[in-house]
Design a protein around this nucleic acid. Structure first.
Lengths: 121, 121
DNA sequence: CGTCTAGATAGAAGTCTGTCAACATAGACG
DNA sequence: CGTCTATGTTGACAGACTTCTATCTAGACG
């Protein structure tokens, strides 16, 4: 579960994409992470985990929120795990997931527009 | 080209994903935009356009930066266009693209982690 | 040990995606 | 008008993705 994280992309990629052109390797690594959150179920899973009290959520809490089967949720959690966005830990009967906020922060930083006038409303 | 923008998602989605759970419709709309940037070529296209002087870039500038054929670049630009991230305008012989910084800003805002301690380095 | 539950894995079916070659279209220009 | 160049569109195909059912594994507990 919490096996060696692939320690994704994130190394050489913090300058906003609008400041200077992404290198090809940076783009490849970033694309993997964005692909991980390019599915509605995975986005909601990530959001449920990140916004859950205590910063973590049990798979049992997550499964009920969707119309798909357990294995499908497992699959999506695996994709999020392999992208480095979340990590899971077994405690007794249940498995708890939590997000890696640094990864989220870096994705957010990469997307910041160049023009400082375009502030968040 | 600059036909009625689909005026994507972006309406009801500015609260960070880690603050409260995304609704299903929000997730569906956001996922479309993230899917648009989940390809290395499209990420680099977006970055090239956004970081280009004057805030716009001609397709002719873009095509040379990649190993794929013209039609493939056209296809990727179309995906970015349909997601609302960029817009193109023909001026004489060439077509110029520019990004919509608000869309970028909103994506960035959605990904901001909950914990304020996780500031950008 | 046997059994029950939470979750993960495997394999299959159907759908979507990226890429190309071939063709179409829009201005520029003679 | 005819032709050349810059982009876009179409149709095809291989590979990747999502979801399911069936099966397996790890703890809990009697």
């Amino acid at each position: 579960m919490s096996k060696q994280l692939p320690i994704v992309a994130m190394d050489a990629c913090c300058s906003p994409l609008a400041r200077e052109p992404l290198s090809e390797p940076q783009a490849v690594e970033l694309a993997k992470v964005f692909k991980a959150i390019s599915d509605p179920i995975r986005l909601r899973l990530l959001s449920l985990i990140a916004s859950h009290e205590g910063g973590e959520a049990c798979v049992c809490d997550l499964t009920d929120a969707f119309d798909v089967t357990g294995p499908t949720i497992s699959h999506h959690l695996k994709v999020l795990r392999e992208s480095g966005l979340i990590d899971g830990e077994r405690r007794g009967t249940w498995v708890y997931y939590r997000v890696h906020p640094e990864v989220l922060a870096r994705l957010s930083a990469v997307l910041v527009p160049a023009d400082p006038a375009t502030a968040l409303v």
